[in-house]
């Protein structure tokens, strides 16, 4: 008895002694963590604000901030405005179509009993492991035959297919936790199964749908491999492809100033979305993690 009490007391003192030391370590860890994540972003921003004379210096802030790089991004031969427009169209179209399709499938997989359900799940999961390079050449040939090269649908359709497995997975997880008694109640009150779904379940599922939609949007905004093959001219290049093949406005070998400015332009919408929806995104990521 005494031994146990003694040990417990020793434990508490050790814990108390630990707290000051520990909170210091945790605080330092947090600072390091934030620095680790954000320092490259800071450097991108700083570099984008340095003019040609200053860009080579490694000063941690711009001595003479200038927007010359941003003018180079949107003017001249780069015309990054087109790329931003292309990416917005592609990402929005992908998100909207993928979400409609995924809501249907997620509902069926979470809610209905039918034969072959596990087969469908296995297929969807197998597709999520799929290496994109395995299909890029046949896709290119197929899209050439259809005259789709340099068209938005050549990027939207593959993006939808790549987004579907994750979207269905996350949505199915969300749907399985819905209060389905409410749907039943609606049906008792005379709603059909589809009416009950649209009027009762879907409104309740909005948080899950928004979360999933965000993940799909990020994936579509970030896609590079397929776009780099099926989109050739600036007219259809999304931001990722346009940025990678940037031409400089100045004499530099590689126009890093403009590339950093374009990087900032691409990142700003993402920062806004992350700040607005961080909780949602995290819950979606962990729901996708097979819980």
């Amino acid at each position: 008895m005494t031994a146990v009490g003694g040990r417990a007391r020793a434990g508490t003192t050790a814990a108390r002694r630990g707290t000051a030391w520990e909170s210091w370590v945790i605080g330092a860890g947090i600072v390091l963590l934030v620095l680790y994540c954000l320092a490259p972003f800071w450097w991108m921003l700083v570099s984008s604000l340095k003019g040609p004379a200053e860009i080579a210096s490694n000063r941690l802030w711009p001595e003479d901030p200038t927007l010359v790089n941003y003018r180079g991004v949107f003017g001249g031969q780069n015309d990054f405005g087109y790329a931003v427009r292309n990416s917005v169209v592609i990402a929005v179209a992908t998100t909207a179509s993928a979400m409609v399709i995924a809501v249907f499938s997620g509902y069926a997989l979470a809610r209905l009993r039918f034969r072959g359900r596990n087969l469908v799940l296995a297929l969807v999961l197998a597709c999520s492991m799929f290496p994109g390079v395995a299909i890029v050449t046949p896709l290119y040939q197929m899209f050439s035959d259809w005259g789709w090269i340099d068209q938005y649908q050549a990027m939207v359709v593959p993006n939808i297919s790549f987004a579907l497995p994750l979207a269905i997975f996350v949505l199915t997880t969300f749907f399985r936790e819905m209060p389905w008694e409410l749907e039943e109640a609606a049906r008792v009150d005379g709603c059909g199964p589809i009416g009950a779904f649209f009027r009762v379940i879907l409104p309740l599922a909005v948080p899950g749908v928004v979360t999933t939609g965000l993940l799909v949007f990020f994936a579509a905004w970030n896609e590079y491999l397929i776009s780099s093959v099926v989109s050739i001219t600036l007219a259809s290049n999304p931001v990722t492809v346009a940025l990678a093949k940037f031409a400089g406005d100045t004499e530099f070998q590689q126009p890093f100033g403009s590339q950093m400015a374009a990087g900032v332009v691409v990142t700003v919408p993402l920062v806004v979305l992350v700040l607005l929806f961080q909780r949602r995104i995290v819950s979606g990521l962990s729901a996708g993690g097979f819980r």
Binding site: A56, Y224, V241, A244, G263, L273, V274
Partner: peptide, 30 residues
Amino acid sequence: IVRAAVLLPWALPTAVSAVMWDWMLQPEGI
């Protein structure tokens, strides 16, 4: 703040991240 900071590298397109690291890893780079 920590959660937002941690999400940003994940959200950044790999293509942008690659160009950014290319710049940081230049011989005269940061």
